[in-house]
Design a protein around this nucleic acid. Structure first.
Lengths: 144, 144
DNA sequence: GCTACATCCTCTAGTGACTAGAGGAGCAAG
DNA sequence: CTTGCTCCTCTAGTCACTAGAGGATGTAGC
């Protein structure tokens, strides 16, 4: 096997994405259809691993499939119109900022709880109010 | 109808959670089984609305059902052991911090893109590398 | 070369969290 | 009393996986 070609298992280990999940990503078009070996095994190269390593954390951060496709397209086609890229990036930016604000509020409240705990009792828990009041995030980050 | 009792529709409007989703939350036990009117309609009160207003953004931030249950339990039972609450809060804190770090990296990269765009071309897009390198968030925030 | 065992293949089905739609009942206004 | 809105239950669909069956392939030791 030529170097810089990986089986699906190696790709999984290197990216942290599970084998069936990689196959699933191919199926839904997040990854290009992989080339095959003589014995019908999928073969991946470095760029594929890069994509994989991107998809997982993006999912973790709540980006939907469509949004990830859009972000990947920015890389695939860096010559696409500036206006398009700008619109995509700006839209993401707004959402990401909202998320950060929400998480910061939650973070402060959790810290407060831990601190209060050190000094004896829980007292009243304001985690719920904190989140309910400060966040207005609606589901996953939207499409482009 | 006594004041401070709400139909499911009113609860939906006030919390921003859709009617079928409220029924679903009851079904899976995130909300207590609602009391019913003469004509078999669900009735909600203020505390129910508070729970609802909490669940939605918590979901948006990626908390899984179990984690939300745990957070709600901190409110329901503020006298539970300090050690338990402390452990829960600390675990959440670590995850939330990771998320914030990831989103900040993504945010910076998106800003850079928008800025570069203003001055003509996109150039090379590093959004993918940014996320792939800086984030190690695995799926939803875990259980307690 | 042969056996053992890991890894791969495809396919179907299950999970979690919704979301949509069918079909029917309750209630308030004109 | 009929129109129309909201409610009820129930089934099924979506998305993003995840698990498992059943079979083929690749590799390492004998």
């Amino acid at each position: 096997m030529p170097k810089d070609e990986f089986t699906i298992g190696e790709a999984a280990r290197q990216s942290g994405v599970k084998v069936p999940t990689i196959r699933y990503y191919e199926q839904i078009g997040l990854l290009p259809v992989a080339s095959r070996s003589e014995g019908n095994r999928r073969l991946y190269d470095r760029p594929d691993l890069g994509r994989l390593a991107f998809i997982r954390p993006a999912r973790g951060l709540g980006f939907a499939g469509g949004a990830i496709r859009t972000l990947l397209s920015l890389q695939d086609d860096p010559d696409q119109s500036c206006a398009a890229a700008d619109a995509i990036a700006k839209a993401r930016l707004v959402e990401v900022d909202k998320r950060i604000a929400s998480l910061n509020a939650l973070r402060d409240e959790l810290k407060r709880m831990v601190k209060q705990c050190e000094s004896g009792r829980i007292g009243d828990c304001r985690v719920i109010e904190t989140l309910a009041d400060t966040t207005h995030v609606h589901g996953r980050l939207a499409e482009a």
